[in-house]
């Protein structure tokens, strides 16, 4: 019964938590959008999958994101604005808990973006975590 409930929740989470977050960075180069991705609500979560894409026009600043967990940080940049491609993607094995995401750009101008973040367990299965919290 216990396993059945877990599988039901797991199946629900697969359908519900395909998390994509969109945002718009304002003109100043100092602007950063800051998020938490919660991989802690499911104790089995051990990693976070992440990538980001910019929908800005060519010639606009490049959009980057930094994923931070404890003493680890990594940068993700979409090298081409406005195309269908994403930044590199990476599974970050930072363990259970909150992952911080900061989104910045390398110049002044309004740019829009979206990123995907998914929490996984040790066997590579999607967990029912990854609630995205916008900090600022």
């Amino acid at each position: 019964m216990k396993h059945f409930i877990f599988l039901m929740l797991a199946g629900l989470s697969f359908n519900t938590f395909a998390h994509t977050q969109s945002g718009v960075l304002a003109v100043p180069v100092s602007t950063v959008d800051y998020y938490y991705v919660d991989c802690g609500s499911d104790p089995s979560s051990v990693s976070l999958y992440f990538h980001i894409a910019s929908s800005a026009a060519a010639g606009m600043p490049l959009v980057s994101a930094q994923v931070i967990k404890d003493n680890y940080a990594s940068n993700f940049t979409d090298p081409i604005n406005g195309d269908a491609g994403w930044s590199r993607d990476q599974v970050i094995y930072g363990g259970n808990g909150l992952y911080s995401i900061s989104v910045n750009k390398n110049g002044a101008g309004v740019v829009s973006y979206s990123f995907e973040a998914h929490c996984y367990d040790s066997s590579g299965e999607h967990t029912d975590s990854e609630n995205i919290i916008q900090v600022n």
């Binding site: 180069v29 100092s30 602007t31 950063v32 959008d33 800051y34 900061s102 750009k105 390398n106 900090v135």
Partner: peptide, 22 residues
């Protein structure tokens, strides 16, 4: 040049610079 960027985070505040003083 935008070749390098730095982000500074304190609490809920996060800022970015490519050379200007934050």
């Amino acid at each position: 040049s935008g070749n390098l960027a730095a982000q500074v985070i304190k609490g809920h505040v996060a800022m970015n610079t490519i050379g200007d003083i934050l």
